[in-house]
Each structure stands twice: as structure tokens, then as C-alpha cells.
């Protein structure tokens, strides 16, 4: 994409995000796990955790963040969350209860921890889905299926849509890849293993 301007990153935003992102992620996990005794739960915590990735995308560029993310983690979050919920629900049947009767598990305080585990499943699903929704919408404007790549969409607003190249080599990242901070930032340890 020759029309793409080199992405000029803002040091202020990068520094702020680097400072804030770990706290937001921690807080998202806290909200997910602490839903039993205070306001919170999987839905809220998942959205807050997903906001971390959105933050990183704004600080370091969407394509870079997308490359940095392990897609398998994303798929694992989305599918694994629903699967975890379903497994807990069905597992109760194995222990002689009914569907979703978490009280029958042979662990201390099965009700409380069963509910927490279900909340974790919800949180995983919501975090994964919101993250992928964001990237799907923000990345690549897909060309109409069955036509060649560029002709379908260069009629209007290429300046507005050029973030949307969907080519796998992601040339945008090559332009900025030389700058140290851009690469370093998303490689920071937080956010990788959100499950």
C-alpha cells in the first residue's frame, strides 16, 4: 500500500497506555472474579479486559496489535468460554445433579466456586468476542467476494479506509517496524494470556 502514510505514533498516548493497560487488565480480571460479593461479573470484566487490547491498538496501531495477538488465543477465548460454561453445566449431570446444578461438584463450597468458574467462562467469551468484533470492524475493508482486491473499494475515502488492507503481509507494519518502541510495546508481557 503505497498510499498509506507512515503511522506517526504519539509518545504521550503510548506512555499512558503502557502505564494504564496493566491496571485495566488487572481490574478486568478482578471484576470478573469478584462478582460474587460486589458488583461485577463476567460480562463487565470481559468488556474491561477487551478494552486493554483496544487501548493497545490505539497506541501502537491496529495492524501491529493484530499481528502481535496470537489468533489461537482469541479463538480459544471465544470458543473456550462457551465450552467452559457448557462443560460446567453438563459436568453437573455427571456428578448426579441436573444441568447447571453446580452445587453437586465434590469441591469445597461448590456453589460459590462453580458460579465463579461460570463467570470466568462468560468473561472469556465476552472478551474474545469484543476483541474480535473490534478488529473485524477496524481492520480491513474486505473487497466484494469474487472480485479482485482493490477495485471494489477505492472509489470513496481511500484515506479513510486504507487502514483496511487485509493482505497477510501487512505492509503497514514494515514501515514502522524499524522503530523500537512500536515493536517493544505490544510485546510487553501483559495481555497475552488473558485466559
Amino acid at each position: 500500500m503505497s498510499s498509506r502514510r507512515p503511522y506517526v505514533e504519539s509518545p504521550v498516548i503510548m506512555a499512558t497506555v503502557r502505564l494504564v493497560a496493566p491496571f485495566v487488565l488487572t481490574y478486568g480480571i478482578f471484576v470478573t472474579l469478584h462478582g460474587a460479593s460486589s458488583p461485577g461479573g463476567g460480562f463487565q470484566g470481559g468488556v474491561i479486559a477487551a478494552a486493554v487490547i483496544i487501548m493497545l491498538s490505539f497506541a501502537y496501531g491496529i495492524d501491529l496489535t493484530w499481528e502481535w495477538i496470537d489468533k489461537r488465543v482469541l479463538v480459544g477465548l471465544v470458543g473456550g468460554g462457551v465450552a467452559l460454561f457448557g462443560a460446567i453445566a453438563l459436568g453437573a449431570v455427571l456428578f448426579g445433579g441436573q444441568f447447571l446444578e453446580v452445587g453437586v461438584y465434590p469441591i469445597p463450597e461448590p456453589d460459590k466456586y462453580g458460579i465463579e468458574l461460570v463467570e470466568v467462562g462468560i468473561g472469556m467469551t465476552v472478551a474474545g468476542v469484543v476483541t474480535s468484533l473490534f478488529f473485524t470492524l477496524a481492520r480491513g475493508a474486505m473487497p466484494p467476494v469474487g472480485e479482485d482486491g482493490e477495485s471494489g473499494r477505492d472509489d470513496e475515502g481511500t484515506a479513510a479506509t486504507d487502514g483496511g488492507t487485509f493482505s497477510s503481509e501487512a505492509p503497514g507494519s514494515e514501515e514502522t517496524g524499524g522503530d523500537g518502541p512500536v515493536r517493544d510495546g505490544p510485546d510487553a508481557p501483559e495481555g497475552g494470556d488473558r485466559a
Binding site: 498509506r4 498516548i13 490505539f58 487502514g163
Partner: peptide
């Protein structure tokens, strides 16, 4: 700040970032 940063980047860069 995420909301403000998103909108400001969008207005400044005319959507080039997004």
C-alpha cells in the same frame, strides 16, 4: 481517556489510524 484518545486520533489523522 480511551474514548477521548480514539476520537482525537480519528479527527487528527482523518481516520488514517483506524
Amino acid at each position: 481517556f480511551l474514548m477521548s484518545v480514539a476520537i482525537s486520533k480519528f479527527t487528527v489523522e482523518r481516520g488514517g489510524v483506524l
